[in-house]
Design a protein around this nucleic acid. Structure first.
Lengths: 107, 107
DNA sequence: GAAACTAGTTTGTATTGCAAACTAGTTTTG
DNA sequence: CAAAACTAGTTTGCAATACAAACTAGTTTC
């Protein structure tokens, strides 16, 4: 029998903030750009506004992103930027996933 | 800019039954053995009994495992076995994860 | 200046995940 | 041999989500 115990703890220790698919999607987008606007984020994720708003608030509370409020002309525009902590958390999450994935799918 | 959209949908389409860490841990163990007893499962996952019970019930409702009730002497013993559907779901989940992971961590 | 639109937030609800408390029986002990 | 303690698991109650509908605040159009 192979050693599955370490994998198990890797699984159970996954960062729940990042693990939620909606938030993982958000972080994935933010990690690929300097800054991302609310509406762009909404469109490419397909999340509802309310949902997106609360997930970004949760990510901000976790210190994983920063919210930038500005105006384009007179219209308010909210943008997000991933923080260093956010980037670190995303990388750590990726590392955890790699650790728990079996070496190869059946060929 | 690279194509992040497909990854996004892979993320948002993750199977939530499997995605929950406790259940992923359970399926991972079941996939590695013929049959696994309740208490063994509880010990190696570290889940509480109640928690383990409800997660296995959810996995059973999803058709991902079968529950086998038996007696050892006069003591009841509950075991679980992954089903073909369960194995397929786990493999599909692994595949989805591989699809969304960036090619390599920074070397 | 009323109606419709933009950009997001708050609120309400339904679903979870979790462990404490419970059930049903078995073994041990006074 | 009955009370206490243990085994094996389930049910219940609660706190935390995730989600979208309804709302807020302002702007543009008609």
């Amino acid at each position: 029998m192979s050693t599955i115990k370490p994998d198990l703890h890797a699984i159970l220790d996954l960062d729940r903030i990042v693990h939620e698919p909606a938030r993982l999607a958000i972080l994935t987008v933010l990690a690929a750009a300097e800054a991302v606007e609310f509406l762009f984020l909404q469109r490419i994720t397909g999340l509802s506004k309310g949902n997106l708003s609360s997930h970004t608030q949760k990510l901000e509370a976790a210190g994983f992103l920063e919210t930038l409020k500005a105006f384009r002309g007179r219209i308010p525009v909210t943008s997000f930027q991933i923080t260093e902590d956010g980037r670190a958390a995303l990388h750590a999450y990726h590392k955890q996933l790699r650790a728990l994935l079996p070496k190869e799918g059946k060929p």
